[in-house]
C-alpha cells in the first residue's frame, strides 16, 4: 500500500460522502454529480487493488494479514456499485444519503486496510 495515496483516497471518500449526504438532505435525487463522485471513489479503489497486487513485487510487502486486507478491499469494491444500483432503482433523495453512507464506509475501510497492511504484531 502507498500511504499517501491511501490517505488521499480516504479524504476524497469522506468528502464525497459528505457531498452525497448534503445533496440528499437538500432534497436532490441522485444525479450525475453524486453518481459521478461515487464512480470516482470506485475508480480509486480499483487503483488501490492494482497497487496492492503490484506493490509486493516492488518490495512493498504487507506486514499484516494479506487475506484480511483483501477481504476488506473486495467488500469495499462491492459497496459503491451496490449503492449506485440502489440509487438507480430508488429515485428518491434518500438514495443520495445511501450513496453517502456507502462511500463513508469505504473511506473508513480504506484507513482500516492501511492499519492491516502495516500491522507489526504477530
Amino acid at each position: 500500500m502507498i500511504e499517501w495515496f491511501t490517505w488521499v483516497q480516504a479524504a476524497i471518500g469522506a468528502a464525497v460522502a459528505l457531498f452525497c449526504i448534503v445533496m440528499g438532505l437538500a432534497r436532490r435525487i441522485p444525479n450525475d454529480y453524486t453518481l459521478g463522485a461515487v464512480a470516482l471513489v470506485e475508480l480509486l479503489l480499483i487503483a488501490q487493488l492494482v497497487v496492492a497486487i503490484i506493490a509486493p513485487f516492488a518490495g512493498n510487502r504487507a506486514s499484516g494479514s494479506v487475506l484480511e486486507f483483501f477481504i476488506y478491499l473486495v467488500v469495499a469494491l462491492l459497496l459503491p456499485p451496490l449503492a449506485v444500483v440502489w440509487a438507480l432503482v430508488d429515485r428518491t433523495r434518500w438514495s443520495n444519503v445511501v450513496l453517502g453512507a456507502a462511500v463513508f464506509a469505504v473511506a473508513v475501510m480504506v484507513v482500516r486496510m492501511l492499519q492491516i497492511w502495516t500491522a507489526t504484531a504477530s
Binding site: 477481504i71 462491492l78 459497496l79 449503492a83 453512507a101 475501510m109
Partner: peptide
C-alpha cells in the same frame, strides 16, 4: 431506506470480519 442501507453495510462488514 437509509436505515436499511446502513443495516446492510453493517451486515456486510460484520460478515466479512467474522468469516475471516
Amino acid at each position: 431506506r437509509v436505515l436499511i442501507a446502513v443495516y446492510a453495510i453493517l451486515a456486510l462488514a460484520a460478515t466479512g470480519r467474522s468469516v475471516f
